[in-house]
Amino acid sequence: MTAIAPIVPEADPGRDAPRRTTSEAAHTGLTSRWASVAAIVIALLWTVPTFGLFVSSFRPETDVKTSGWWEFFASPDVTLDNYRAVISGSDTDLGTYLINSVVITIPSVLIPISLATLAAYAFAWMRFPGRNFLFVAVFALQIVPIQVTMIPLLSAYVQPPFNLMPLAGADAPGGGLYTIWLSHSIFALPLAIFLLHNFMREIPAELIESARVDGAGHVQIFRRIMLPLMMPAIAAFGIFQFLWVWNDLLVALVFGGGSLDISPLTVRLAELSGQRGQDWHLLSAGAFVSLAVPLIVFLSLQRYFVRGLLAGSVKG
């Protein structure tokens, strides 16, 4: 044995082995064998469905439609035709919707972050009357399900009060995209403010106080101290909001006004699944076109994602 202390206690045979009788050892061995079996069964149930569709997306159309994906391994026949058809084929044209998804998602992530960092800073480090009441109010509004806001919000976009410019309709600015950007931003704000506020409060007050004593104003503190320190928290919220917006169907359906011109991938995929439910060669490739981006983002930023999850960033 080396001098390194065992991190995992039960892996230390020197301490446990003598105390354990044969039957006990057999018992533990058995349960751990059953435990392994159970873990493998769950892991398989959770991966085989995705794997099957993934394999299918690379099989020729006739194969996909006439034989199960598991037969692929008996006669492997790989093609990229499905992806070609789905991305640039004139009837599916997912390439355009992929761009729509990007165009919808980026502002919908950046806008709430920019607004919420300001508000969270005010709630965390500025003193003003009614601060607690306002913060609790913002926090409480997380409860409101987006369904409750949709009809009035939609009519406000079409016929805004005070003769403001309508955000939906033929002459809408940004081709009507503002309705989607704004809606996603609004729905994200309470959670974003709450989370960023919590992270900002964790920064030691002495740090802020000493900066104030040195003559720094709130803006300097915000820019020089808060923003750099907040980057992990912003990343944690950002990845959440990214996944939420990229994967959203309801907001895009309602506020996209049924216009496919500004619809994201999810709307198009849902439609394909309804209209061409048996064209599995297209559906499989289409599904993976839409899954690729969030999976890459997710896997590369998993650390931040878990941190955000543990801090309570869950949106219904």
Partner: peptide
């Protein structure tokens, strides 16, 4: 690795998940 397997469905859209399972149920 084992955790990532169970974790991955969280990253995909419910539309994507539904398509995956429609194929399972075909």
């Amino acid at each position: 690795f084992a955790k990532a397997l169970i974790f991955l469905p969280m990253a995909i859209s419910l539309v994507g998940a539904s398509i995956i399972w429609k194929f399972v149920y075909d």
